[in-house]
Design a protein around this nucleic acid. Structure first.
Length: 107
DNA sequence: ACACTGACCATAA
DNA sequence: ATTATGGCCAGTG
């Protein structure tokens, strides 16, 4: 079932490197993989990671506005928000507060 | 190979 | 503010 190089696996590798209490964006991850990779695929990969049961901190990945666009994909409506708050990232109205302060970009 | 979908992003009106 | 459209490209049928 695995291809020679799973695109998903590459996304997972970056997401796993997001430090505790930090968040990243789809676009930043996509850019790290190569500007050709669309940010859509990043979210697609994270969705698959949940299906896979992989330990991927997908709650640390938000869109470029710091908006929790993926919250609907987590079990429970506010689970993503609660997970972030538990890490010290405050969330109001589905948006990360001080987003720029928590933003982490892959090297 | 083709059609369609998708947790995005940018621009236009 | 909202809606539409193009681009991006992997996955699925």
């Amino acid at each position: 079932m695995s291809s020679k190089h799973d695109f998903f696996n590459r996304v997972y590798d970056v997401v796993k490197r997001i430090p505790y209490g930090k968040v990243s964006t789809y676009g930043a991850i996509a850019a790290h993989l190569g500007a050709k990779r669309s940010a859509r695929m990043v979210g697609f990969a994270l969705n698959a990671s949940i299906s896979n049961g992989s330990a991927i901190p997908a709650h640390r990945v938000v869109n470029r506005d710091g908006l929790l666009t993926g919250k609907h994909h987590f079990p429970g409506v506010n689970m993503m928000e609660e997970l972030l708050k538990a890490e010290g990232v405050n969330v109001i109205d589905d948006r990360v507060v001080n987003f720029g302060d928590h933003l982490w970009v892959p090297h």
